[in-house]
């Protein structure tokens, strides 16, 4: 029998939710654990095997000088490197610091800020090393994760949809919350993956899976601005869990300039 591919799971600045998605695949976990050798996964096992690894899953963003070095070492250890989740693929919610004064943040949260070492930015893994596949979501969709790892094991290309959430609402038969209720919804510019959960709950999409392929954020926010939504509403909507993803970042900065010009 051929040796099983060796899998490692690494964590950077994050909430643990994306790696938990693997443990949350209750029906598939034991089978999955049989198909690969779980060589390094601190949250799940005390058995730690040294690299190199065939597949590395990386959760979290880079926020410290130490982590910027650690991801280089991890890249060198992993044949295929997959980032999982909004933190690893775009910097996560903690990338809000990229627009703020990090020293001031430190003083706001910690009584003795001199004990904390942190970078002024939170950045995606791909900003530091080559990444072989990026899996989006805050959190990721566990079925997409199983698909990506399964495809790798079979030596084929992963099938992960890149269309917009908007299309999923049509498929689900969900009445459009932007048209029918006038809510600001990011569904037209956000990548599919969640199943269009928020419109299904009578609220607008807030962009957990980041920008969809060929998204046109400018056209969408112009429409919302023309129909009574102000910058104070659109700016935080675009600037949250995927704030630093290029299409969302550029549009939020445009809105910010518009708001500034209107003052």
């Amino acid at each position: 029998m051929a040796t099983r591919p060796r899998l490692a799971v690494f964590k950077f600045a994050s909430c643990d939710g994306c790696q938990l998605s693997l443990l949350d695949a209750e029906d598939e976990l034991l089978e999955f654990a049989g198909a690969v050798e779980i060589a390094y996964f601190l949250e799940a096992t005390s058995a730690i095997a040294p690299g190199p690894y065939d597949i590395g899953l990386v959760e979290g963003s880079i926020t410290t000088a130490h982590d910027a070095q650690r991801i280089q070492d991890i890249r060198a250890q992993c044949r295929t490197l997959i980032t999982i989740g909004a933190c690893a693929t775009s910097g996560g919610i903690q990338a809000l610091r990229n627009w703020a004064d990090t020293d001031e943040f430190l003083q706001a949260v910690y009584a003795s800020p001199q004990y904390i070492s942190t970078l002024a930015t939170s950045t995606a893994i791909a900003d530091h090393v080559r990444v072989d596949f990026e899996l989006r979501g805050c959190p990721i969709n566990q079925f997409q994760l199983l698909e990506v790892v399964g495809a790798l094991l079979q030596g084929r290309t992963p099938r992960v949809a890149r269309h917009a959430v908007c299309l999923d609402c049509k498929r689900n038969g969900t009445v459009c919350v932007a048209v029918a209720q006038g809510l600001a919804c990011l569904g037209p510019i956000t990548q599919s993956g969640c199943g269009a959960l928020c419109p299904g709950c009578d609220r607008g999409c807030y962009g957990c899976f980041g920008p969809a392929l060929q998204a046109n954020p400018r056209s969408l926010s112009d429409q919302y601005l023309a129909t009574g939504h102000g910058p104070a509403q659109l700016l935080p909507l675009l600037r949250n869990y995927n704030a630093a993803a290029t299409a969302f970042r550029e549009e939020s900065e445009r809105i910010e300039r518009l708001a500034g010009a209107g003052d």
Partner: peptide
């Protein structure tokens, strides 16, 4: 675990989020 500054960036955000 690197700090993520939630309490700092919550300031000024819409309370509904």
């Amino acid at each position: 675990e690197p700090p993520r500054f939630f309490e700092a960036f919550l300031r000024g955000r819409p309370l509904r989020e």
